[in-house]
Design a protein around this nucleic acid. Structure first.
Lengths: 356, 356
DNA sequence: CTGAAAGCGCTAACAA
DNA sequence: TTGTTAGCGCTTTCAG
């Protein structure tokens, strides 16, 4: 047995193993080195140029140009707790109803240097929880809930997350946080009154089966009954229902169904312009004159509404304003300390055109 | 002078200052502590459950439940270089043309645990570079370019970034990476041939001024001329042009303009279903019978096309398939090492309905 | 199967 | 104005 320890190193100090996770990408470090400054200085040059001398600013900019550096927002967001990401949740993009909101949200946010992450919840609550987890996991600087019905559990999770939330497309009594919407009940009332003023006395509804649409229809029906636009003694007005999201075919089928049951209706309030387009189409196919025999009112003032024949009387919601306001709320909230609550009723207007 | 050093601490060791960036949030560390394991073990329990004993898996799950822990994907993405984010760039969401793609992209990605970030480039190239920077900065696992015309500079930046790119809605000769599209030229040809078979001999076009639409129209026109559907000696077919994105009003105005110049046309190829709807509407308003006097062909097979009166003959593109394929490409690419290129011609079909 | 150590790329806090 | 230091919360690498 030989006990010479010759084979054993005298000290245990291992050779410092080299970094095993080289990225290959250009980092702020590289830019800083090239500019001959500390990384934090380069960071300042990019994020708060005013806090850096003109001379250094120039050198950093050159270095960025030369290297093609693009800041890693994951790293930046992790360190600063500002992701500059905003999540939007909509039932579905294919309904067209929320397009204007999403469009203006994206555009306005981009102007502030924020990006939009899109989540579709569907009209059922089932996938919502999964979606919420994915959203919260990204630590967005804000969440915009667009026309969505949240579970109590979902509300709670959002609250717990501490992320600013803007609820839109509705007015509720106890918003999570900020709120930009309008009263669906008032819409229903206003349309009923409008049709009453126009002399209609046998009104009906054609509605999607989503919550908000039904609230509009309920208010419409109640007001119509009160105004004497229903059959004597009836507590509601004739109506047909179709699944959300709606399409043109549902409008056509809905009108057929309604006419089969109530051939004598003289006005129809549709829960969306898409459905209304279907109604106009079916009326044309059947030779029913609009508005002489049947007045039609839509909802949403989608881009085609003004150009139909006859042009469509409808309820206009300023989706672009909703989007822009929501974006501003979130950006301001994430930049200021102030916890100013925002609750905005953006209202609606009845756009009077030929169909009613 | 008293030089007793009593007021001075004997050693310079400062009290270890407490962390000045407490988050307040629950982290993996908290979960691990509660479960009595190391953070990395908790991480494994969540990401690769099969690499962890049943016993520990259970405890970690309980801890997650108890704490309401939601993983921070910014941190995870930074460490693992996998953001599980995919960026989509579309000209505008309000055109309706790309809705189906975005819809299926979002849904398919969600199924894999990925989210979609939406960027609108507009139809001009100006804002594109800004947008690219924002996108690359998020280090997405993939970028889907939908119907967009990229600048050479943009192409280069994307290439340099090393991010997988799927170009869609077109077939080009030298794709950046993956490609899912169809031939706009073949669409134009096919529609011309279709109208020729149907006996039309005085065709015209009504097109948006975007690149792809114009390529369809060019091929349509060339084929029509070759088939003898133009005035003798003319190298093109009558046409009107409107700005993208199109709307129904443009279809109405376009038809008026065309008829003023060429009252005798008997068929019209529109660059979008939206325009075609405007054409049908204007025809109805003017008492022009479709298809007897004027055949109308749209493009896109939007959801309303089948339900118009007359129903709209159009060119169908399977947008849902484009979205699903793009999502799969990116997810596979980001999970496997394989650099299998994907180029798919998804083709198109002419949906024969009443309007032509 | 489990853990310790070492970052990912950036910025907040403090110090000069 | 500039720099030093110490993380943000997670996962990779390497070692049991």
């Amino acid at each position: 047995m030989n006990d010479t320890p010759a084979n054993k190193p005298a000290t245990i100090t291992p050779a410092p193993r080299r970094s095993r996770r080289k990225s290959g990408g250009i980092t702020l470090r590289d830019v800083a080195a090239l500019a001959g400054v500390a990384p934090i200085t380069a960071s300042r040059a990019l994020n708060t140029p005013s806090a850096v001398s003109e001379h250094i600013l120039q050198r950093v900019k050159e270095a960025v140009e030369k290297t093609g550096y693009v800041p890693n927002m994951l790293a930046g967001g992790l360190a600063s707790r500002k992701s500059r990401l905003v999540a939007a949740v909509i039932p579905t993009i294919s309904g067209n109803v929320f397009l204007e909101v999403v469009q203006s949200l994206t555009a306005t946010l981009a102007g502030y240097g924020y990006q939009l992450m899109l989540g579709q919840s569907g009209y059922e609550d089932s996938r919502e929880d999964e979606l919420l987890e994915a959203i919260i996991g990204r630590r967005p600087d804000g969440v915009v809930l667009t026309g969505i019905m949240r579970s109590a559990q979902g509300r709670q999770r959002l609250l717990n997350s501490g992320i600013p939330v803007v609820e839109t497309w509705d007015l509720t009594d106890n918003p999570i946080d900020m709120l930009i919407g309008f009263s669906h009940e008032k819409v229903g009332e206003a349309v009923a009154q409008y049709l009453h003023r126009r002399g209609r006395r046998r009104v009906a509804t054609l509605s999607a089966n989503d919550q908000r649409a039904q609230r509009r229809m309920k208010a419409f029906s109640d007001t119509a009954v009160a105004l004497g636009m229903a059959l004597p003694g009836e507590a509601t007005v004739p109506g047909a229902m179709v699944p959300a999201p709606t399409n043109v075919g549902m409008g056509r089928g809905g009108l057929r169904e309604l006419l089969a049951r109530h051939p004598d209706i003289d006005a129809l309030f549709c829960s969306s312009d898409t459905v209304a387009l279907g109604v106009l189409t079916e009326a044309q196919a059947q030779g029913i004159r609009v508005p002489e025999q049947l007045a039609v009112v839509g909802m949403g003032d989608l881009s085609f509404a003004a150009d139909l024949y006859p042009s469509l009387t409808t309820v206009r919601i300023d989706g672009a304003r909703i989007g822009a306001l929501a974006a501003r709320f979130i950006v301001e909230r994430s930049q200021e300390r102030e916890v100013r609550d925002g609750i905005v009723d953006i209202g609606f207007s009845i756009v009077e055109r030929e169909s009613a």
